[in-house]
Simulated assay, not measured.
Amino acid sequence: MKLSREINAFMQRLGHEFDRPELLLRALTHPSIATPARPDNQRFEFLGDRVLGLVMAEALLAADKTAREGQLAPRFNALVRKETCAEIARAIDLGAVLRLGRSEMISGGRRKQAILGDAMEAVIAAVYLDSGFNVARDVILTLWGDRITQVEADSRDAKTLLQEWAQARGMALPDYTEAARSGPDHAPVFTIDVRLENGATAQATAGSKRQAEQQAASALLALLDRPE
């Protein structure tokens, strides 16, 4: 299969040359441009998430042989979350080779965190299907690099921190509500409100409910005293 110069350059940045490049092309195909003859990357995203999870679990156990499960879990979450996957995708300029529909390109899809994070997981699956687990592990460990050993022991996400802030002050758990939803079905945009029992509120908008909730929690934390 003859590949474009951009795809060949991306494989160099990724650190893997595909024997079956059609797997990479599928991993780069967003639902906004998919057809029956050109399937999207959502099934690959599902698989890649699991491959990434196993690699990170193994790597964390090897990096700290005395850590308890309660210490490992937040580190794991920090390494596999969509935000981190999107950071890796940006580092290798994955957005430049994404196959997007016209409307998604116009709306800045090549820079959207949710799209980049999903595509990074899909590319991991493509590497795994192309060359097996050991090769996929090597690619992942190279791309994640020092993040694995430098991840904070206390890598709790914003929602967890906000929950702990409220509980430490005898308040009910934060309340998250969907204030609005827009965009096409294949790429919805959610606006989430978060409210504490004391009346403090914040709002955020993102390409997934989870991401919007995290950003809303982070915004509210910025208005409050951070938990100890």
Rank of each mutant, 00 (worst) to 15 (best):
S4R: 07
E6T: 15
I7S: 01
I7N: 03
A9G: 09
A9Y: 06
Q12C: 04
Q12R: 08
L14M: 04
F18P: 01
R20E: 13
L24R: 00
L25V: 05
L28G: 00
H30G: 07
P31A: 04
P31M: 06
P31L: 06
P36Y: 04
D40W: 12
D40S: 10
F46S: 14
F46Y: 14
F46L: 13
F46W: 12
A57E: 13
A62P: 10
R68S: 11
Q71G: 02
R75G: 04
R75A: 01
V80E: 05
V80A: 03
E87H: 10
A89R: 01
R90D: 04
R90M: 04
I92A: 02
A96V: 13
A96K: 14
V97T: 07
R99G: 09
L100Q: 10
M105H: 05
I106V: 12
I106R: 10
R110N: 04
Q113G: 07
A119Y: 03
A126C: 12
V127W: 07
L129K: 15
S131I: 12
G132R: 11
N134E: 13
V135A: 09
V139H: 13
V139L: 13
V139R: 11
T142Q: 13
L143G: 04
W144Y: 15
D146C: 11
Q150F: 14
V151Y: 13
D154V: 12
R156N: 09
D157P: 08
L161A: 00
L162D: 00
L162W: 00
W165Q: 01
A166G: 03
A168F: 08
P174R: 00
D175N: 06
D175W: 05
Y176Q: 01
Y176R: 01
T177K: 05
E178V: 07
R181W: 04
D185L: 09
D185A: 08
V189H: 09
F190L: 06
I192Y: 02
A200Y: 01
K209F: 00
Q211S: 06
E213S: 06
A216C: 03
A217C: 03
L224A: 03
E228N: 14
E228A: 11
E228C: 14
